[in-house]
């Protein structure tokens, strides 16, 4: 039950490609899957910020929170 897909060409710098390949290795995913996940996450963050929510990272041990400013 896979949805129809469209193909695109993506131009990345060496540094960007290195990060993408590193994420593929770490996450055990293809480049396409990593980029799909990135798009989903980006859309989710945008939707929450647009609603007025804030984005935080919390240190599990110290419970210290750092807000990511999304302007």
């Amino acid at each position: 039950m896979a949805a129809a897909k469209k193909t695109m060409t993506l131009n990345l710098t060496d540094a960007e490609m290195a990060v993408l390949e590193d994420l593929c290795e770490k996450k055990d995913l293809s480049k396409t899957s990593v980029l799909r996940q990135a798009l989903r996450l980006y859309q989710l963050v945008e939707a929450r910020v647009e609603k007025g929510d804030k984005l935080f990272f919390e240190d599990e041990k110290t419970k210290q929170k750092a807000e990511i400013m999304m302007l």
């Binding site: 770490k26 996450k27 055990d28 995913l29 899957s33 996940q37 989903r40 996450l41 989710l44």
Partner: peptide, 16 residues
Amino acid sequence: DMVSHRCRLPEQQGKD
């Protein structure tokens, strides 16, 4: 949900 959770089992920890 495909994006908000990560694996917890040691053999697949952190994977989607």
